[in-house]
Design a protein around this nucleic acid. Structure first.
Lengths: 332, 332
DNA sequence: AGTTGGCAGTCGGTAGGATCGAGTGCCAAT
DNA sequence: ATTGGCACTCGATCCTACCGACTGCCAACT
């Protein structure tokens, strides 16, 4: 799409702008390695790149900064994911190290990602619909309150409080649990929706149906989101108002999940500025990688930073962390 | 400590400064209700208040702003916690409404508090050492990995992965669980440390001791922290650097827990500026309230904002939320 | 004696103006 | 086609003047 020379000039602009956050002028570009023409030629090419929408000028006598389209081209055609040695070492250490449980591990993964990229990190936990149920239990908390606890094969534990119509003793609850176990254990949670028959005892069936209602709400919308490093947003922007609006987004877990899902569903691994579809993120870029457990996409890791972020670094970090995380979770 | 007139002048300064964030001059104070002397008199009194360390002048020809000592006096002697009708309504609605589980409820509580005060909110979850164990289970995840799951009386579920030395089949795990249950169910978790005897079967005792090791790490340091509304920090300060350093604190859960605990242990309900003991929080104030379950302090709710925050509002919000939360959790 | 209006003085914040310099577009020369 | 040169633009910076919101102090007043 762009000839060799234009491409190298665009690359130079993006790389310098990412470092300095200042509009970059023809002189600097001409000095950059990979560009071996004079600044005058660069000026001509930059004017062309601006006409084509890859660069923009904040004002007449200033250097150029990349547009979204410019970043997009950079990411698609010019950025080589690369992880420096030290970062690779961090990742290795992280995944060699044991973690207390799946939630803890996912939370720690966000910390790893912020450490690697110096940006806010997001991890969406594995969906539950595919995970196999290992154990089902009903525990009485109060006369008419019980807790439904399901242990999944990946080590996560789902629980819901159940409000009962009538008093239920431990014996009845145990019977119900046994009945549900029959259909559930060894199968994914969603199997419960179809696979549970009647027991022949109406008390059991009554409680069972209450439990089933709760399982429905658990199966969909059960994703957990972990966010960390939002403080880095305050390093990325110097307009406090921008920081505030971005942080507000990051605080809304449902929005974050929807955002990530949307980006992944569009087949992107990077969403730049308005590509995120969220107005407050106009100055942000989101780099994501789905991770797979047993060959199935179950979650996403991502990094959110300013559009002028280090894409090669972020792409590499997100890719390798996603991959290793998937492996680790596949082991069980 | 302060005579009537000085007190009302200090109050006027604090209240106006909280609203406007501007140094307040003698003229405005003289206009304030509760002050019925001329601005000249106010000037004299303000000079005295400054000499005594309650007020400070950013520069010679500016109004006064409260010092930490000034805020402290305001909080101790002048602030009447007050919750407006709408806020009270919000609280009522919140606690009338059902919540999916204890974690969800605590997380939602932080949302409630930010909603009420427009500041960042923190909730430290109930400690586990007092909670009674309702059920104990061991679930096999992989040949040598098991998950220890304990359901507590307050509806929370504690779990730890256990790495086993040898393969253990479901039967053995069930036996171990039964053995542990014997000592634990009906007692607080910490009872496990003392109360478990030998079973007479060495395989069981071996696994049991592994489980006990994990219980130790669960009992202490098991507090969960929920933080929400850090975006509001970006509204409170206009120096992006301040925002960053405060957010960094809020991201470190251990630090936050220690901070809250420290403040509560000192018997304070408000920590102002350097009273927090954390340099980056020099411009912040922390308002906390412990909450009790069955008469025992088990956790803390709190609000973190700029030193120039609405203390009456924050004090009232934190107090009532803490109280209602305690009640709610006591019901089970 | 305490309180008050008046007044000179201080000093940050804002507006206008000059200057500086990085960067551009264009053109003629190579 | 590329390049060095040049006139031009325009934000950033600095200076100055000015305004206004204060204060501290003092003399007058109750």
């Amino acid at each position: 799409m762009l000839d060799e020379r234009k491409a190298s000039i665009l690359r130079a602009v993006v790389e310098e702008y990412i470092q300095t956050a200042q509009p970059v002028g023809s002189g600097h570009v001409a000095d950059a390695p990979g560009v071996s023409v004079s600044s005058a030629t660069v000026r001509n090419e930059m004017a062309a790149l601006e006409a084509d929408g890859f660069l923009a000028q904040p004002h007449t006598s200033a250097g150029r900064i990349p547009t979204e389209k410019g970043y997009r081209y950079f990411v698609d055609a010019l950025a080589e994911p690369s992880l420096d040695r030290f970062a690779a070492q961090q990742v290795r250490a992280f995944f060699d190290h044991a973690h207390a449980g799946i939630e803890q591990m996912l939370a720690d993964t966000t910390r790893l990602l912020t450490g690697l990229t110096n940006h806010a990190a997001v991890v969406v936990g594995p969906t539950h619909d595919a995970a196999v149920v290992r154990s089902v239990q009903l525990v009485s908390l109060a006369p008419r309150v019980a807790l439904f606890v399901a242990v999944l094969g990946n080590g996560s534990v789902e629980k819901r409080t159940i409000e009962l119509d009538h008093d239920a003793d431990d014996l009845l609850l145990a019977d119900v649990a046994a009945h549900i176990s029959l259909a559930l254990v060894g199968n994914p949670l969603e199997a419960a929706l179809a696979g549970i028959g009647t027991s022949g005892r109406s008390e059991i069936d009554a409680v069972t149906s209450l439990v089933l209602d709760e399982i429905v709400t658990t199966v969909d919308g059960g994703e957990q989101v972990f966010v960390h490093g939002s403080s880095r947003m305050a390093e990325a922007f110097d307009a406090v108002e921008t920081v505030r609006s971005v942080l507000t987004i990051l605080e809304q877990q449902l929005v974050v999940v929807a955002l990530l899902r949307d980006v992944v569903d569009r087949g992107l691994n990077v969403a730049i500025g308005t590509e995120t579809g969220m107005q407050p993120l106009a100055d942000c870029a989101l780099v994501v990688a789905p991770y797979t457990v047993d060959g199935e996409q179950v979650g996403t890791v991502g990094v959110l930073g300013p559009t002028r972020m280090n894409y090669p670094q972020a792409l590499a970090a997100v890719a390798v962390v996603g991959q290793r995380l998937g492996h680790r979770l596949s082991e069980g």
